[in-house]
């Protein structure tokens, strides 16, 4: 929880639709979060993760450079709670290791996403 020193948790956003990503970023900021990204590729998010760790993350499943599996595994290793926000149905084959992960199907009101982030953070206090 080191990122929350200034009271604003840091949310990593991985989403390759720029319009959706920027809108999400605005909504999160309005709700009192700071955002890392938005990243449109797994490679960019992995690059950022080399030097930093978020408090939580919102991940799209299918990015232009492939599925978000590697990011999910890395966040899992660091015990960072995250949620999946995707147009796909929950795909158990893709993320068999993440059966317990919150999976939210696009689209939902952003208040639902913000609330889900809040619960992830409360859950790991």
């Amino acid at each position: 929880m080191t990122n929350q020193a200034n009271g604003k948790p840091l949310v990593l956003v991985l989403e390759d639709e720029a319009l959706i990503a920027l809108n999400l970023q605005d909504e999160l900021r309005d709700a009192g979060y700071r955002t890392a990204g938005p990243f449109t590729t797994c490679a960019a998010a992995l690059g950022w993760l080399q030097t930093a760790t978020p408090d939580t993350a919102i991940l799209d499943v299918a990015l232009k450079d492939g599925p978000c599996l590697e990011i999910a595994l890395e966040l899992g290793r660091r015990e960072v709670p995250f949620l999946i926000y995707s147009g796909h149905h929950k795909d158990r084959q893709l993320l068999a290791e993440f059966d317990h992960v919150t999976w939210i199907e696009k689209p939902v009101p952003h208040s639902v996403l913000v609330q889900a982030c809040h619960q992830l953070l409360v859950g790991c206090l």
Binding site: E17, L19, I20, L22, N23, L24, D26, E27, G87, E105, K106, P107, H110
Partner: peptide, 13 residues
């Protein structure tokens, strides 16, 4: 679903 999410983002923006 992605198009709907885009439209939703357009509403917000």
């Amino acid at each position: 679903k992605n198009t709907l999410a885009t439209v939703q983002a357009l509403v917000g923006a």
